[in-house]
Amino acid sequence: MEKFEKLTGIAAPMPLINVDTDMIIPKLFLKTIKRSGLGKNLFDEMRFDDDGHEIPDFVLNKPQYREAEILVAGDNFGCGSSREHAPWAIKDFGIRCVIAPSFADIFYNNCFKNGILPIALPQERVDVLMKDAQKGSNARMIVDLEAQTVTTSDGEIVAFEIDAFKKHCLLEGLDDIALTLEKGPAIDSFEEKAGAARPWV
């Protein structure tokens, strides 16, 4: 997995609540058996009209945000289906960090498996970052995972919390499966015990 350490980039403002995974990547694009190539369809129904032309008002179509690497959004981001295609599309587009007051559970976990950093902050802190993002492309934020801070273009520092294990895995780019397989003996002995206690399973 790709590491996430420090990112300096343009932040796109998306002050919508309940951005669901159907919006992030409509189901039409789930029929792939690959992980890559979904970025061109990120937010497809909001980004393009019925004829496939860009909708100029949509934030990621505006010249100043086309290269955004950070997304600042409203409450309950990523709700809805469990599709990992959502973080795949976000990453493929080039966004590596999403900031919102809260995230849906499955989406939040999926981000970490794909080298994306989701940052949950209280509404008033998100508001500060939203305002900064709304300034356009001259405003570059700095996201520092090690220090657990986001720095606005004006130098204001916003600290965030993150689970220590998830942080470690992201910083090191660790593969969960390899880590778990190291615990093979513990899984073996659990299976033996559980098999005796609940043989019908």
Binding site: S82, R83, E84, N109, N110, I177, T180
Partner: peptide
């Protein structure tokens, strides 16, 4: 529900 990376994790472990 789980994501696809977790599907792989459960399949393997």
């Amino acid at each position: 529900g789980i994501g696809t990376s977790e599907v792989e994790h459960v399949l393997a472990t």
